[in-house]
Design a binder for these strands. Structure first.
Lengths: 140, 140
DNA sequence: GTCGAATGTACATTGTCTGTGTACATTCGA
DNA sequence: TCGAATGTACACAGACAATGTACATTCGAC
């Protein structure tokens, strides 16, 4: 079965497009939106949909293939592999926590209201713990 | 009065050094650690302390000067300007919230434990609300 | 089996961003 | 007046992202 995910890419974002694509797809993969042997859109197809170069999509696919999520084959398209959920990596965890604190500090320094920020943080935490299965697709 | 802030720079971080410096100083400025007409270390002095190039520090100072925090003068060093706290910029706020959600999603997808993440989010929110009262200058 | 099209890949190119090297302009104190 | 301290300007190198282009491979039509 071929699944056509709806992704939203922000060309103005600071995060590179290929990583945005990889992140969005990884979130879907983790959330169980696909099943093993599902096929994703071809490199060129998704590139057309998103309005980016096919090599950009290929790079995103390659990232996920490197993580064991996808299997890329010429002409055969992109198939989803069976894969266990990622193992918690202590180094990655501390890295993410650092980035989190850094981001909050930066937002504060830019005048983002404490209340707004705190509300969002609590909201995110709440949603994390509430959703046993975080299979929420992207909502635009 | 010359204030010598203690900054910690992470050369391995993904965020550029000059922005780390600017962020750290901005946080101190917002927090009221300096008073108007305080002088910060010279470009070369701070550069030596941090072990980076003086142009890197100059770039950070220039960022803050562009935001109205500092006044740079040749030979006279860097003086802190009286400045109102940044007014909340709706565009900036939504931008930061987007980056926040993006970061959390990425962490999740990389296998960072939900509980750990949620705990950190709550902790940050808690610290935000209980700590300083909206950037009031600290008077002891 | 042959051929053409579809598809992933490889590589060079271009533009941007950081950090640095180096020289210069300016300003203060002796 | 003069020299040193200090911020500034500009070019350079390296890394990275996105793209243009050509190629290798594989499937389906016939």
């Amino acid at each position: 079965m071929t699944v056509t995910p709806t992704l939203s890419i922000d060309l103005a974002s600071a995060t590179p497009v290929y990583r945005q694509i990889a992140n969005a797809l990884r979130a879907l993969l983790v959330g169980g939106a696909f099943r093993p042997d599902d096929t994703l859109p071809t490199v060129r197809q998704l590139a057309t949909d998103l309005g980016v170069h096919h090599n950009t999509v290929a790079e995103a696919y390659r990232v996920l293939a490197g993580e064991g999520w996808l299997d890329l084959k010429r002409r055969r398209g992109v198939t989803v592999l069976a894969r266990e959920l990622p193992q918690p990596d202590p180094a990655a965890e501390t890295g993410f926590l650092s980035r989190l604190r850094e981001l909050v500090a930066e937002a504060m320094a830019h005048g983002v209201s404490k209340e707004l920020l705190a509300r969002e943080l609590r909201e995110l935490a709440h949603r994390l713990l509430e959703n046993g299965h975080d299979g929420e697709a992207n909502k635009e």
